[in-house]
């Protein structure tokens, strides 16, 4: 911008129109699609269903805390998300290290393409692929029965393990890529220097590699936690009848019970939990949201 003003041949104030034309879509986007909706969500969560005339009403939140069913589902959903986050972290960290530090040249590029590829594919197709693997009439059962390991098919879908597999599979790339990014930026000479100074492999990993990768680990954990917490597809398709997920309760309030006020309160609590984790994650590693997303 400075360049334009310094250009003395045309001493104009740069077209205000340009700024206005660019600003309008942005403001509509922010206020009509983001700020407005979230304010409305917050407001109607404090209104009694079908009785807006009663004014400020805390009942939707009181109901959440007084009925064990709801907060138990809430806590369990949070635990699922935390376990899934650690699970994906432990699977993806070594894979990211391999890609960043051990794969070389053309191999490296090819392997990255290969790893990214499945995540372009629709989440629904990915979930379905796991369903036909794990189902009672599924592929794994067929293999096991054919080999004589199982005497008859076992239902492997519709339980907690299936949910963990599905949730982890759904979000692995979002853990892998940020960690790969920071590890790729770690200078090999740092590791060599530590080796020259006599550090053992574990010391190097713990004192050099891990601290350096923390920003990527944080970014990955935040995204995976958020995605898992808000996942609806995997828990409803792969989970059992009695392992209700919190997003399902929100759906039930909105679409089945038609109690939008209660549903909004639940939604707001989910948003709060998700926001809290994002904030904590950033706080612990001293990063800003705008930096984490690049």
């Amino acid at each position: 911008m400075g360049g334009i003003q310094n250009n003395s041949k045309k001493s104009f104030k740069p077209f205000p129109w340009f700024r206005v034309v660019c600003l309008i879509p942005l403001l509509v986007w922010i206020f009509v699609l983001l700020v407005g909706p979230h304010v409305q969500l917050f407001v109607i969560s404090f209104i009694k269903n079908r009785h807006p005339e009663e004014g400020f009403y805390l009942g939707n939140y009181i109901r959440f805390f007084s009925e064990p069913l709801y907060w138990r589902i809430f806590v369990r959903t949070a635990i699922y998300a935390i376990v899934t986050t650690f699970f994906t972290l432990s699977i993806c960290y070594p894979a990211a290290f391999f890609l960043a530090k051990m794969a070389k040249g053309r191999w490296k590029l090819g392997l990255i393409l290969l790893v990214v590829l499945p995540f372009w594919i629709s989440e629904l197709v990915r979930t379905y692929s796991w369903m036909i693997m794990l189902r009672e009439t599924g592929v794994i059962n067929w293999i096991m029965v054919s080999l004589g390991v199982f005497s008859k098919p076992i239902e492997m879908l519709y339980n907690d393990y299936a949910i963990f597999v599905g949730l982890s599979y759904a979000s692995m790339l979002y853990m892998l890529l940020p960690i790969y990014g920071v590890l790729d930026g770690l200078d090999d000479t740092l590791i060599e220097a530590a080796q020259d100074l006599g550090a053992s492999r574990w010391t190097i990993l713990w004192e050099v590699v891990w601290p350096h990768s923390l920003p990527g680990v944080t970014a990955g954990c935040i995204i995976v936690f958020m995605l898992t917490l808000g996942n609806y597809l995997t828990p409803t398709l792969m989970g059992g009848k009695n392992s209700l997920y919190f997003t399902e309760t929100i759906y039930n309030q909105f679409i089945v019970s038609w109690n939008w006020n209660q549903g909004s309160a639940f939604g707001f609590l989910l948003l709060l939990l998700s926001g809290l984790f994002v904030w904590l994650g950033l706080k612990f590693t001293g990063q800003k949201l705008t930096e984490v997303v690049r």
């Binding site: 983001l34 909706p37 958020m226 808000g230 939008w260 989910l270 997303v293």
Partner: peptide
């Protein structure tokens, strides 16, 4: 505009619905 990246999709859906 960065915020939607850390808001669960379900929440984006219901908030626009109620708005």
């Amino acid at each position: 505009i960065i915020a939607p990246l850390v808001i669960p999709g379900v929440i984006l859906g219901i908030s626009i619905l109620v708005f």
